[in-house]
Amino acid sequence: MKNRTLIYSVVLLLGIFLFSCKEEGKYHSISDKIEGESKPYHGILTSEELLADTELIEITEGEHTFLIPERKGQIKSFACIECHSKPVSQMMGKDAPKAHWNIKLNHANSDAMNCATCHNGEEMNQLNTLTGKNIDFNLSYKLCAQCHSSQFEDWKGGAHGKKVAGWAPPRASNTCVNCHNPHSPSFEKRWPVQFNTKTAIERNEGLGH
């Protein structure tokens, strides 16, 4: 009698243990899971609708092909040749009206950079590389990439910079000048936009003893 009760209770306990054994996950870690589940990839979500209002151009850099915002339409006084009808050297003079007086170059030091490092003084609608090759304003990132090669690598891959609308393909990334002012590219110090007064009270007041 007593033995039987004992056996029953053991069986019951065993049953509970078996029942409570969790179903082992298919994957050992998240990286296994990513690898395992992404093999036949057929995602259908797209951000095309979100990108509809933005004018984009497609670029290919190395193995990456993606969209960047068109730039020329965003520059207020484009095209430059509407004013700069002649090369800069010819327009400079005492009686000529001053232009772009508010632009102060705050990018590297003056030994390394001046306006002509990027702007083509002869053909104002174009930018130029260090070796004097013309670059379209839409592709200004190519200029930045001349010095900032590691950032360029990150940007191409997607580790640097922001996306235009969403995460879903097609990929549309902001280009350098969408976040950085090319004349003064670094971010400035400023006050944070948030302060949590409740947290401050909670932590500093303590318990009042």
Binding site: I34, S38, Y41, G158, K162, W167, C179
Partner: peptide, 25 residues
């Protein structure tokens, strides 16, 4: 985020930027 410090995406899409970050950074 004004600095682009935050990257978001689909881990199962081999062409997504988040995948590139995980594989290259």
């Amino acid at each position: 985020c004004p600095t682009g410090a935050r990257i978001f995406g689909n881990l199962l899409d081999p062409n997504s930027t988040i995948r590139w970050v995980l594989e290259n950074k």
